[in-house]
């Protein structure tokens, strides 16, 4: 029983949390893919930027969270999301739109987004340094230990407040996104433009407005993902290095341009990562008396050592590109 609780703590909770973060990032990437048709390499740093904005707001009003009984950074999230969305629109207008209007190839836009990512990194390091920070300034991280009503389970299920918030936020975000895309005029216009941009223009759809909306959604989800990730772990200026590959993998696994696919892909990649670094030997422990003397069980049995965690999204990416380049939900390959 204790082993199962351990599995829940290490795999279920961790997988849900990682998956939620990846899903929120991947939705943004996939929407930019769908509407603007390029791989937005600056997405990871958009997340970092959003998290730093949330951190700055938290530092400015360290006790705001106490009013709601929530972490201050979480209370500051709406403001951070709005600011990041505005910044994303500004970045688009400065760096991507001129190239689009010139009729540049998508790959040139990819390059421009790399330029943007390096600029964001430079600025963050200049103004915030390279150290790791905690998002909890005037508070402590709440940790819940849930006891199970079984005799056999002496271990407790452990879940922290940020982890609960991440999962809840992702669920709310997914539902709102679904509502937006299927019920609102702008949401439908977004889907239309993703389907057939020429026809959207012919129909008189305001393509500028759709582009702005795309950046609002992508930017605010990036800020949310970045902030929630930093709440769960810590705020690092080089966060984007470890997150860019998984969110691209998630977007491609789900089918490029398919928001629901990106959500599914996010959880798939998240759980794959967690399961591959999980020490499976622990689940075999109860069987040790049975197998004693027959086979020697190793104490550590994981698919991938933690240092190589980044290979997991890469292997998934390669597998998808080889066997099903359209992804699970049949995305746009061209």
């Amino acid at each position: 029983m204790n082993e199962i609780v351990f599995f829940i703590n290490k795999v279920l909770v961790a997988g849900l949390v990682t998956g939620s973060i990846y899903a929120m990032g991947a939705v943004g990437v996939t929407l930019v893919f769908a509407i603007l048709r390029f791989a937005h390499f600056a997405h990871g740093d958009l997340m970092t930027l959003g998290a730093f904005i949330a951190f700055a707001l938290t530092a400015a009003f360290p006790h705001a969270g106490a009013i709601f009984g929530l972490p201050t950074a979480f209370v500051m999230l709406p403001a951070a999301m709005a600011l990041t969305a505005l910044l994303a629109i500004w970045i688009d207008g400065r760096f991507y739109r001129p190239l689009r209007e010139r009729g540049a190839k998508p790959v040139v836009l990819v390059m421009a987004s790399v330029g943007v990512t390096l600029m964001i990194q430079g600025l963050l390091r200049l103004f915030a340094g390279t150290g790791t920070r905690s998002m909890f300034i005037a508070e402590r991280k709440d940790i819940f230990r849930i006891e199970l009503p079984f005799e056999l389970a002496r271990r407790k299920i452990v879940i922290t407040e940020p982890q609960i918030l991440v999962i809840l936020f992702a669920v709310v975000a997914a539902i709102s996104l679904h509502w937006f895309l299927t019920r609102t005029r702008t949401g439908k216009a977004m889907r239309a433009m993703s389907d057939n941009p020429d026809l959207a223009r012919l129909s008189g759809i305001d393509t500028q407005q759709v582009v702005r909306t795309t950046w609002i959604i992508a930017g605010s989800l990036a800020a949310a993902a970045g902030t929630l990730l930093s709440l769960d772990v810590a705020l690092k200026p080089d966060m984007s290095f470890n997150i860019l590959l998984p969110i691209f993998a998630a977007a491609i696994v789900g089918g490029v341009g398919q928001p629901y696919g990106a959500i599914a892909g996010g959880f798939l990649v998240g759980f794959a990562e967690v399961l591959s670094v999980f020490n499976w030997a622990i689940l075999l422990r109860p069987f040790r008396p049975l197998l004693d003397g027959v086979v020697e069980l190793p104490t550590h049995l994981a698919f991938v050592p933690t240092e190589y965690k980044l290979t997991v999204p890469f292997v998934i990416l390669v597998a998808v590109l080889v066997w099903r380049p359209t992804g699970i939900f049949r995305g746009k390959v061209i």
Binding site: F95, P98, L99, A104, V108, M111, A112, V114, G115, V116, T117, L118, M119, I120, Q121, G122, L123, R125, L126, G129, T130, G131
Partner: peptide, 28 residues
């Protein structure tokens, strides 16, 4: 801040990024 020097060096990536975006836009 005490680590201003290391920050100054790290911030040079900003210039790489800026050069890329400027060249792409004005001198492709």
């Amino acid at each position: 801040p005490a680590d201003l020097d290391s920050r100054a060096l790290q911030a040079r990536v900003f210039v790489i990024g800026l050069t890329i975006t400027l060249v792409l836009r004005y001198a492709p």
